[in-house]
């Protein structure tokens, strides 16, 4: 039986919410498992996601139709290769306008492609409103609320804020120590390569902190994937 192909759409209407970090973690998660993925970076200027995965990810400019075709037509190929879309915050509205106008979600389901929205939450009401709008428009769509604690800390009210978001699933990206954060932000630094062969000249404290952080994230992703697989299996769901 052919499995459904997941299309992870990582997004937030806000800048610096930590969208690319989440997209990057997913990319490295697949690479760490020696699985292929195809990535799309919708920021045609800085290409933060595509720069991390030059072989796997392509840059798509959604303001031109060619860019829209190269993204959505490829996402609809049910080849069991996971797709990751890093939605630039400035493309956010336009992205969902195109999704609505071309009927992407409905077509994806028809072709056994499962769009999964990884919505990076923050404390702003506009972000909450956008998440509610997506949920109203597509109530059956898998909407995962991601709390990226390092990029968009929500303070003491975090539980109240997250409780207002519509979601059956959530992911929590723990914060990183600033020193470790600086290291992973270095151009060319790969989380999956680090996991396979940590640099010998790296401090053991940094190595441990980074490994713990990566493992916590990857474990959540694996658990999420398992839940999705089980929900696809009628006698297990």
């Amino acid at each position: 039986m052919q499995r459904r192909t997941p299309a992870y759409i990582v997004c937030s209407p806000q800048a610096r919410a930590g969208v690319t970090t989440v997209a990057r973690l997913f990319g490295d998660y697949f690479q760490n498992q020696r699985r292929e993925f195809i990535g799309f970076d919708t920021d045609p200027h800085e290409t933060p996601f595509a720069s991390r995965f030059p072989r796997e990810a392509r840059v798509t400019n959604l303001s031109v139709i060619q860019g829209q075709i190269s993204l959505f037509d490829r996402l609809l190929v049910n080849d069991e290769t996971p797709k990751i879309v890093d939605v630039w915050n400035r493309s956010f509205k336009h992205f969902f306008a195109i999704v609505r106008e071309v009927g992407f979600i409905e077509e994806a389901r028809r072709l056994s492609v499962e769009p999964i929205i990884l919505y990076v939450a923050d404390e702003t009401t506009s972000s909450l409103e956008s998440a509610l709008q997506i949920n109203r428009q597509w109530p059956d769509l898998t909407l995962v609320i991601v709390n990226n604690e390092g990029a968009a800390p929500m303070g003491a009210e975090v539980h109240d804020i997250l409780a207002r978001y519509p979601s059956e699933h959530d992911l929590q990206i723990p914060p990183l120590d600033p020193i470790v954060q600086k290291i992973i932000e270095r151009p060319g630094f790969s989380l999956s390569r680090f996991m396979l062969a940590p640099p010998t000249d790296m401090s053991i404290v940094v190595r441990t902190a980074l490994r713990v952080w990566i493992n916590r994230n990857f474990a959540q992703f694996q658990s999420f994937e398992l839940r999705m697989t089980m929900s696809d299996t009628p006698f297990l769901s």
Binding site: I65, F72, D73, L76, I98, E101, V102, G103
Partner: peptide, 11 residues
């Protein structure tokens, strides 16, 4: 035909 183009025509 491209899905995106078909989607635009459909709408």
């Amino acid at each position: 035909y491209s899905f995106v183009l078909r989607g635009y025509v459909r709408t």
